[in-house]
């Protein structure tokens, strides 16, 4: 079974982002980057599928040249090889999906595992767009994946509870947070990853026009909430909620 997993390099989600004074983007100096958290779950799942069914895990990233670091991390976890589609532009989800569709055409994977969203752009679109372009079925927000007889049975986290869906492979699965526990890269894994193949391409070479369908014009900080008061006890809290906030 050939499994494709995708990886995005994002700013460390635990650091507060700052906006450039000219509102053209976020400050990148002194910022730490790491693999998008949801992609860690996706890569873990891809490796787990390989461990159960055999085959190969290929990881793909669309992003700047520095993304080789995140691809090496994925290979240190256990992915077999990597492809970087290099671009310095901040692509919209649609462009990323069309780039990935070209990679899928070349690689012909049986299943693609992606993170459900990137924790920087928070769009939650790429996998579904890709599935649509390939006319493949999709199972998003997975917390459980079983593969057998050419189908994937996927438990999904949805509003109101959980849902189960079966998709015939090839298909696309997106990882939610309770899908698995991503493994840490071991030291031998890290050493091995250095020698694993990493190919670099460009959107141009894939024949994809990455002009955005959604153009970002301006970055702003949301209004800050001011810290309120620490109260003495429950009685004071009830009094304030009743007489000041008028919510009781």
């Amino acid at each position: 079974m050939k499994i494709l997993a995708t990886v995005k390099r994002v700013t460390d989600p635990d650091m507060k982002v700052k906006i450039k004074p000219d509102q053209s983007g976020v400050v990148t100096e002194g910022v730490e980057y790491k693999m998008n958290s949801f992609d860690e779950y996706g890569v873990e799942e891809a490796i787990a599928i390989k461990e159960e069914h055999g085959g190969e895990v290929v990881v793909v990233s669309v992003g700047p040249s520095e993304s080789t670091k995140e691809l090496r991390t994925a290979m240190a976890m256990g992915a077999d090889r990597a492809i970087l589609v290099e671009t310095d532009e901040d692509l919209d989800s649609d462009a990323v999906a069309r780039v990935l569709a070209q990679i899928v055409e070349r690689e012909e994977p049986d299943v693609i595992v992606m993170g459900k969203q990137a924790v920087d752009s928070d769009r939650n679109q790429t996998a579904q767009l890709l599935a649509s372009y390939l006319d493949w079925p999709q199972a998003t927000f997975a917390f459980d994946v079983e593969i057998g007889d050419g189908w994937a049975t996927v438990g999904r986290e949805v509003d109101g509870g959980t849902a189960t869906k079966r998709i015939k492979l090839p298909g696309i699965i997106t990882a939610d947070l309770r899908l698995n526990e991503p493994r840490y890269a071991s030291l031998p894994g890290i050493m091995k990853a250095k020698r694993k193949p990493l190919d670099t391409l460009t959107p141009d070479e894939l024949g994809v026009d990455v002009a955005p369908r959604v153009e970002v014009l301006k970055f702003e900080a949301p209004p800050e909430r001011e810290a309120g008061e620490i109260l003495d006890d429950v009685d004071e809290l009830i009094d304030r909620l009743k007489n000041e906030a008028n919510v009781l």
């Binding site: 679109q125 579904q128 767009l129 599935a131 949805v158």
Partner: peptide
């Protein structure tokens, strides 16, 4: 932008050759 909307709308966007705004 419920879980259904998030799952569904990108596929609609692809079909309409539309850009999509999330949230």
């Amino acid at each position: 932008a419920s879980t259904t909307g998030k799952d569904l709308l990108p596929r609609v966007a692809a079909g309409l050759e539309a850009g999509m705004v999330s949230d």
